[in-house]
């Protein structure tokens, strides 16, 4: 597309191309948003797992502290 020469095209044709490109862009954006939203709906469908994950936070702290110390020793 970058290397295409548009100089031979009439203004009318250019305008038409722009309109069509805009339409395609809109459709692509819509499709992308739809996919993102589908993923979000999918995640929400598994919310029970996240509830469980959220309730085991003290274990996280222990693992995190171990990692911090490991990182510090590695840096030394």
């Amino acid at each position: 597309m970058e290397n295409e020469d548009f100089s031979s095209l009439s203004e009318k044709k250019l305008k038409k191309l722009i309109r069509e490109t805009h339409m395609v862009l809109d459709q692509l954006t819509q499709e992308l948003n739809q996919r993102k939203q589908d993923k979000q709906h999918e995640e929400i469908n598994h919310i029970e797992e996240h509830f469980d994950e959220a309730s085991h936070n003290l274990g996280n702290l222990k693992i995190f502290i171990q990692k911090v110390f490991a990182e510090m020793t590695k840096d030394k």
Binding site: E53, A54, H56, N57, L58, G59, N60, L61, I63, F64, K67
Partner: peptide, 9 residues
Amino acid sequence: NTIVSLGHI
């Protein structure tokens, strides 16, 4: 929630 986020370490 900050402690929960540490689970992704």
